[in-house]
Structures are given as structure tokens and as C-alpha cells.
């Protein structure tokens, strides 16, 4: 992620090497390069502007600490501000839990559900999946096919129209398992009925975690969408999908929520 950022930062920082006072022009140039890289990665425009102002201001105003050269000083500020922007990375805990998957249509929830199931399985946990997507044609066939390839039990019924019923019936059937992952249909911030549906699924399932699945290519819309999901079900993790393309994931990064995983090197699962 943000791989271009690394190289353009390095170039910009080079210009500060050997300087004894912070050079305004050099800092401005550095901030400009940083802005460009972040904007091209779909990081939220307001965040980018805030970040660049903070870096500029701190680099020019903060006193150079003893024994630290200008380059190191600015680098440290850039680093701190970037870390602020990204928040902490979350971690996937290994233990008994119910995970509710949420996200926009086509973001990769179903594929990620299967990837997560395999991940927990490989860590030695007993895993099951509930298909609560009652809308998309072929949704049950998709997840049940993926699950059967990796020997994961999958509860669902392509004829059932009530997602809540599937969750209600599915959970008891998974009682011997440690990790249960609930796959849901796609929805977006303006679909109030569907937002209500996922609120209800969350209530009924008493999910331990609610993870938002975001496509790496999602643009400036990401923050607003994420906010709506967060208001609805208190998202406690974000998973970025499709990082094997050329998108940088800055939209997901700007969601302001904890990044749980990006499954680097992940890909479409055809099986």
C-alpha cells in the first residue's frame, strides 16, 4: 500500500540532507510530493490537506532537537503524522468468536468470508459460515462452493427470503464450532432498509466483531460509507480487498476505522 509514497518521500527528503536550518522551499516541495502521492492513492482530500498543513507547520515551527539533523527531524514529523492518519492496525484474534461481514455491493465480502474461514481453520480452529445473503442470485451457491472446497460447514438456503431467520436458525446449528462468520448481502449508506437489516442481524447474532469489507479502489466516498456502517453497527475492523490490482487502498485507509487485515497477495477465488 502507498508504495509510491515511499520513493517520492525519499527523493523529497534527500533535498533536506546536509541542511542546518529547515528550508521552507524544501519543506513545501516535500509536502507537495506527499500530497500528490496520497491523493493519487484516494486518501480523503480533507485528511490530506490537514496532514500537509500539520507537517508544514511543525517542520517550520518546532525546534530542532539536539543531535538531530534537519532531515531526521522532518522525517520524524512526517512519520508521526502518517501514523496518526492511518491509526493502529488491528489484529485477528484466535479464539471463539462470531464475525459479521458488512460492506458495499461487490466489495468482496463473500470471497473474504471464505479466506477468513480458511485462515482460522489453518490456525487450528473449528470454523463455520452462515450465508445471510438472501438477495444476490447465486450467493448461496458461491459461498457454499467456496466452503466445500475447504471443508467448512456452510449454513444457508437459497430459497429463504428472510436473512434474520437464516441467522437465527444458523447459529444453533454451529454450536460446536469456535469461529462463526456471517456473510451478508451488499448494501450502501443510502439504503435505509438494508442498513436496518444489518443492525438487526448484529443484534440477533450478538456478533463479537463487525468487519467492514472495502474495495481498495473505492474513492472519496469511502469515509462517508464507512461512517454510516459504523453508526449502524459499530464496525471494529476494516478489511481491504483487491490489493492485488493497482488500487492503493487510500479510501479504505481514510475510513478512520481500525484496519484489521488486507490479505496481501490475495486474489479472486474462482474455485
Amino acid at each position: 500500500m502507498l508504495d509510491k509514497l515511499g520513493s517520492s518521500l525519499k527523493d523529497a527528503l534527500k533535498k533536506l540532507a546536509g541542511k542546518t536550518v529547515v528550508d521552507r522551499a524544501a519543506v513545501e516541495e516535500l509536502v507537495k510530493d506527499l500530497q500528490r502521492a496520497l491523493l493519487q492513492s484516494d486518501v480523503n482530500v480533507k485528511l490530506v490537506m490537514g496532514l500537509s498543513n500539520a507537517i508544514k507547520k511543525r517542520s517550520l515551527e518546532e525546534e530542532l532537537p539536539k543531535g538531530v539533523n534537519v532531515r531526521e527531524h522532518v522525517l520524524r514529523i512526517v512519520y508521526q503524522e502518517l501514523v496518526n492518519l492511518m491509526g493502529d492496525g488491528g489484529e485477528v484474534k484466535l479464539g471463539a468468536q462470531t464475525i459479521l461481514m458488512a460492506g458495499l455491493q461487490g466489495s468482496g465480502k463473500t470471497t473474504t468470508t471464505a479466506k477468513l474461514a480458511r485462515y482460522f481453520q489453518r490456525k487450528g480452529l473449528r470454523v463455520g459460515v452462515i450465508c445471510a445473503d438472501t438477495f444476490r442470485p447465486g450467493a448461496y451457491e458461491q459461498i457454499s462452493t467456496l466452503c466445500s472446497k475447504i471443508n467448512i460447514p456452510c449454513f444457508g438456503d437459497p430459497k429463504e427470503k428472510d436473512a434474520l431467520k437464516l441467522v437465527r436458525d444458523g447459529l444453533p446449528s454451529m454450536s460446536g464450532l469456535e469461529v462463526v462468520i456471517i456473510d451478508t448481502q451488499g448494501r450502501h449508506a443510502l439504503e435505509n432498509d438494508l442498513i436496518q437489516e444489518i443492525i438487526d442481524i448484529n443484534t440477533i447474532s450478538k456478533a463479537t466483531h463487525r468487519w467492514l469489507v472495502i474495495d481498495a479502489a473505492l474513492g472519496q466516498q469511502a469515509s462517508e460509507q464507512a461512517r454510516r456502517f459504523h453508526e449502524a453497527i459499530a464496525i471494529d475492523g476494516v478489511i481491504i480487498t483487491k490489493m492485488d490490482g493497482t488500487a492503493k487502498g487510500g479510501g479504505a485507509l481514510s475510513a478512520g476505522l481500525t484496519l484489521t487485515a488486507s490479505f496481501p497477495g490475495s486474489s479472486a477465488w474462482g474455485i
Binding site: 493519487q40 484516494d42 450502501h188 443510502l190 481498495a216 473505492l218 474513492g219 488500487a247 492503493k248 487510500g250
Partner: peptide, 29 residues
Amino acid sequence: AGNDAVIRADEFEKTVGADAVVLTKADMD
């Protein structure tokens, strides 16, 4: 889609060609 839209559209156009474009999910605000 954000910035990646131009990168991938360009690649598809270059490799297999494209005569027209459909943009979906315009209802997502």
C-alpha cells in the same frame, strides 16, 4: 471508484479495446 479508475480503464482499452463504458452503482451517492 477513485484514482484506480483511470489506470484500469486505460489498460483494458489498450489490451482488448473498449467502445463504450457503463458506470454502475451511481445510486451510492
